[in-house]
Design a protein around this nucleic acid. Structure first.
Lengths: 197, 197, 197, 197
DNA sequence: AATGAATGAGGCTTCATTCAT
DNA sequence: CATGAATGAAGCCTCATTCAT
């Protein structure tokens, strides 16, 4: 009689470990043995739950992105005005703490790899799309309240999320010209451009 | 009578092939044998010119980026007004033709890999910095001519190049919500926000 | 109320499945998981009834051969003359129907494997010896009735069973020069040579 | 500048080793590492000349059979009468010396495996067919000289080669009822039945 | 009596690297 | 300068076997 959700538990355990390793050494150097060790299971167990290494990696990418989105939910539930909310959202995306850093690194791997793998592109679209939608909704609310200037909110959203992604890459690459503080201010500068008046 | 610079030629031949393969299969799947084949040389020859695989890849990244910048020079030499020049620069960066596509794909690999390798971060900074400087200079010229609004031109430049990078990734990932046309318009929308008045 | 001999039933169920798989994929590719599936039990159950894979295989070989002999009994009980009986015995051994085909395939695996494993040689001798004895008895009866020429009946038996085995292999290998009909006629030609006159 | 026929040499070296290992441990237990060791090369070299293990094994089967046929040629060139020649051919096929024993063991593996692999069936037919043809030719010559009785020589040939194969299996399985001497006499008994008068 | 999750040793295969030519 | 045969370390994956339930 199998314990309930042993499978779901074990899968998460493995995927979480895969993200850690992915962020640490990159896709190129990821070894399933290392993932197994990080997850505290045997290499055989990895293959008991996932057919191939590719499957592990793809699932890890998905796991990383959905986790990332979950962490945004609290912000939306707060009672701030839309412009502040945008700043909070950006703030939450900054590659600041180790958790966020890990997420970004995994993301960068997904982007590089996703260029050649349709399934990964779907993962990106499914979850990145939600992120874009969230920003769009906040902008739309801002427009209704007269806080955000006229214009296509989807376009504004794409501008912001695109900029966040691009700047984050430079931060992660330790560019001397783009640190955390600069990234925050640069993003807020764009939000400032969105403001009415 | 041996031609001078056979070595330089051979190096370029190999690096060019490496970029092609890198864009095609990604760093994870890049095999020196494949690079050798694409370059029309033997695997032994690769190692005659480069110590290790890592050396080939790093040199290929550098090769890709310097090539990329070269292609911007003609725009700067033109006689357009700064705002039009910015649009042209953005246009030249769109992942539109196969050459540009290849460059972007290699770039994405560099970003993912550069997160862990200092030498690659230097490559990024050296060449990415130039790109940022070019944009900054154009913006500054625009401000001098009263075409671009007040504000730190470096910040404006970071906004634009960051957005270009972020949006390009989505285009390369075939996001249904971000195609070439949309990317162009979105970038131009930002340039519009920079305009005085 | 537990049925008696559940164990014996389960064993047969497993061995029967093992023969099916053995004939289908060969010893080299036989996986206990596949046997378990074919038997409709779990992999754990296989090991509940058999210590090792080798044990399963050996038992399956024995199971295959004893099954095979059982199918000859009805012929011996019939009221034909010995020469006809020989023809019937040969006929019953032809790799004609799927059941017979499976038995032959398992047999071929036994031969290849038995070359290195004494226990399998004993299995072969125990059951193959019976088959030889049956043929010998029929030949001896034929001699008593003056239908079979003088000579050592054991030698005649060895000639016939040897020929049957050798030809069967070629039939099973789909040799264009040895089909079922040809095998039947070739064997009967030998029986013809045994006939008195 | 590659030495001439390094490739052919190396291939034979590997295949010869494969046959040794095949005879010794069987297909089921054949490890490429063991073949490599027996051939005195690295495991990498095996894969430099053969794509997969399956390719090595198939080539080894072919190698074994063509080698086997070569060893018959001298008999045909001799000046004996056809009946003696048949006895010599049989004699040369007896699993008597270690070389012949090895060939038979490899053959048994081929038969078991060939049941499921078309390419191996072709190998069998190509080379087994030649063996059958040789025997047929000798029998035909015997008929021309009045030494062999009337009848289809192909049928006679099939009788003999079939019997040889079947009896050899029992010898190889160490059947107490079929040793080398008995096999020789049993085959000669059949040849005796072929004799005119 | 039976299950199936988990293991881990070991095999095939890949591929960067070497080196004799 | 260049080759390509050869290497061997290392990775993915398989699968017989175990054991808690």
């Amino acid at each position: 009689m199998p314990r309930p959700n042993v499978e779901a538990e074990r899968r998460e355990q493995i995927l979480s470990a895969a993200c850690v390793v992915l962020a640490e050494v990159g896709l190129q150097n990821l070894r399933l043995a290392q993932v197994a060790k990080a997850a505290g299971v045997s290499s055989g167990t990895i293959h008991y739950y996932f057919e191939t290494k590719q499957d592990v990696v793809s699932a890890a990418f998905e796991f990383n992105m959905s986790n990332s989105l979950e962490r945004r939910q609290s912000i939306l539930a707060s009672e701030q005005n839309p412009l502040e909310m945008l700043q909070e959202l950006v703030e939450s995306y900054l590659p600041a703490d180790s958790r966020s850093l890990q997420a970004w690194r995994v993301w960068a791997e997904l982007w590089a790899e996703g260029m050649r793998l349709d399934p990964l592109q779907e993962v990106n679209e499914r979850l990145y799309g939600q992120w874009r939608d969230i920003v769009t909704d906040v902008l739309r609310a801002g427009q209704r309240q007269g806080l955000v200037k006229e214009g296509d909110p989807v376009r504004f959203a794409n501008m912001l999320v695109g900029m966040v992604d691009g700047l984050a890459m430079q931060v992660l690459l330790h560019s001397p010209n783009m640190d955390l503080k600069n990234m925050r201010e640069t993003c807020n500068a764009l939000i400032g451009l969105f403001a009415a008046r």
